[in-house]
Every structure is written in C-alpha cells, then in structure tokens.
Write a protein that binds this DNA or RNA. Sequence first.
DNA 1: CCTACCGATCGGTAGG
DNA 2: CCTACCGATCGGTAGG
Lengths: 204, 204
Amino acid sequence: MEKVGARRQILDAAAHLLSRRGYEATTTRAIATAVGIKGGSIYHHFPSKDAIVGEVVNEGVRVVHDAVVAALAALPARAPARQRLETAIKTHLLASLEHSDYTSACIRTYAFLPASVQAECRAERRRYEKLWRDLVAELFAAGLLDEKLSPDSVRLMLLGALNWAGEWYRPGGMSIDEIARDFAGCVAGPDPARRKPRAKAAAD
Amino acid sequence: MEKVGARRQILDAAAHLLSRRGYEATTTRAIATAVGIKGGSIYHHFPSKDAIVGEVVNEGVRVVHDAVVAALAALPARAPARQRLETAIKTHLLASLEHSDYTSACIRTYAFLPASVQAECRAERRRYEKLWRDLVAELFAAGLLDEKLSPDSVRLMLLGALNWAGEWYRPGGMSIDEIARDFAGCVAGPDPARRKPRAKAAAD
DNA sequence: CCTACCGATCGGTAGG
DNA sequence: CCTACCGATCGGTAGG
C-alpha cells in the first residue's frame, strides 16, 4: 500500500516548490523530477501548470479554513472571545508554518499568480475572511477592543501579521504557542483565564 | 533638461515591474522596452539582471528607513512614544504604498530573490529592524504595552501587518491616516492627545 | 545603443 | 508514463 496516487504526489511536490521558490521558478519539469517521472508525463495527470497551481492554492485556503473551524468547534461551548482569538491565531500559524505546504504556498505566491488562478480561489478566500470578520466582531462585542477602531483595520492587521510570519518564523526560535499568545495579547489584552495562581507562597 | 539618466530610468522601470509582477516575470527585455531601448542594451548600463534587482531592493530599504527617520526627527523633541509609533507606521505605509516602487518591490519580492541578492541588502534590513526594535522599547518604557509581551512579538506583528498591507490596500478605500491610527491604536491604545475636545456643547 | 546571435530552458504536444 | 520534439523566451554576449 505504498501507492499514494500520482495526482496527490504531484500536488504535494508543487506545493512544496511553490512555497519555497515561487510561481515562475516552480517548473513543470521540477515537479516531475520531484515525483520521479519525466517532464512531459505531468500532462498525463493535469492539463496545464496552472491547473496544478490552482488546485494547490485552493487547497491551501481550504486547509487553513477547515483547521481553524475545527479548532474553534473543539473549544468549550461558551469559551470566551479572547480564548477563541488565540486559538484561531495559533491554528492559522500551525497550518501555514508547520503543517501545510499548501497553505504557505498560497500565502506566499498568491500576489503574483496569473489572474485566472487568483480568480479561481477568490470565493474560498472570502469565506476565510468572513470567519475572521466574525471573530473580530466577537471581540468588539466582548468589549475587548476600543470602539473607535475599525473592525476592518483589526482584521487586516491580524491577518497581515499572521500571513507575514512565514517570512521570519524559524523552527528553533519563538514557539508558535508563544507567538499566538503575544499576538492575541497585543490586540485584545492578556488572557484573564491565564492569570497565574499567585505561586503557592513566596517560593522563588 | 529631460535627460533623467539611463541608469535611473532602468532602475525605476525595474522597481515598477518587480513590485507588480515579481522577480522572474521581470525580464531584462521588459525593463528595456519600458525605457525605450532594445533588450541587449541593458547590459551597457548594468552587468546583470541581479545587479539591477540588487540596487532596487537596497534602495527600497534605504528609502523607507530614511523616510521614517526623517518623520520621527520632524516631531517635537519630546513627542510621546504613542505619537512616534503612529508617525512611523504612517510613514512606512506611505513609502510602501504610495511613494516608492522600490520599497514595495523589496517587500513583495524579497522572499524569492536569489540568495546573493538577499545577502546584499541584509545589513540594510537589520538597520531598519533596529529602528523598530528601539521604537517598541520606547513603548514598553512608556508603559503602553503589557510587560508580559515579548518585544520581538510586538515588532514582528507590527512590521508583518505593515508589510502585508500591499496585498490589500487600494487607493480608494481606507486612507493611510486611518490605517495608521488604527494599527497604532490596536497595539498601544488610543492616542490621549487626540481625545476630542468634548464638542462645543451638546450639539449633535 | 543596436543587430544578431548563443545555449539553456520554458510550457506544452504528438505518437506511441 | 516515455521519447522526442515544438515555438517562444530567457539572461547574456560579440562586434560593431
């Protein structure tokens, strides 16, 4: 059972190359070589390079969207907005920095993709945007954000910081947990649920 | 006096193309066509494509660095940290979104540039990073940030949000002033100096 | 600054 | 899935 499916192997290799080298440098021949076939054979599985790239970036948005939805759903039913924010941040970072070449490929290459490929996943992106719009609305409703701030600003600032993390994050440095705690704390204040229990006595 | 200098024209065209199409799609022939010469003639002015790209990205960092330094220097000598933050944010956004193709080219293409080109401007980038490191330290010193936050997190969050702005900013939407006010307000709270003077009476 | 060209490589195809 | 190939285009060069 070592058959993974040639299509999946090609998509995996394309996602890997896209996230590390960008759109133009990800050639059909490089993808083929990575999966152990010859250049022309790619077209037995996909009609064009952009069909491959399109599937990768679409899956990239879908993966992170599904992951965040699942992580939020796994929280207690009445989890406070502050905790939901930090969970969403951590999940987005995990997906784009550790789990998914698809997600990082989408984030890093989207801007310079052919218009046709961009258009293909615009709907999926808007769905994900909506999730964050709602999350920011929760924060306002909970009184965690200054009412004079525009919800758009807050969302764009958060997603900008998250999407840019791929440019500086390195596995040995700050952990994703730490980054998520600080990013959430920076916009919504410290998590009251994490107030440390006043160390047993005066120990340490 | 319509002679601008061929080198400068080439760099301008390269910066423009780089910021809009990316590194690989910015061909020496496209640059040449943009300045009205033939493809091969580029090499009369520069030894290689990467020499052009290298100068563009270096200038991109330098321009935004100089602009922010100048904007901070133009503030009153004892301007509070909160105001200095917002000024730095606004200036960075103006440079990368409105004033300088060089800066946006640098921000948008850096990740996928050849290692040799990246290395060339690493020192300049660290200088700019230092400016923000100091600015964040001022915010902590002024008591505007939760002491439990890591200074690195705050700086990376801010610069991430700023550098990502090119992916969503469009001239007709939120103004750069508004974005700067909200981004600054989001991490350091509302500006006390802007508390509105309690409208004349109960008018409106 | 141009013409004319180099070898390499691109996305994609024909025909097995 | 491969061999062999297409026209186009790339960065760069020679020689004016």
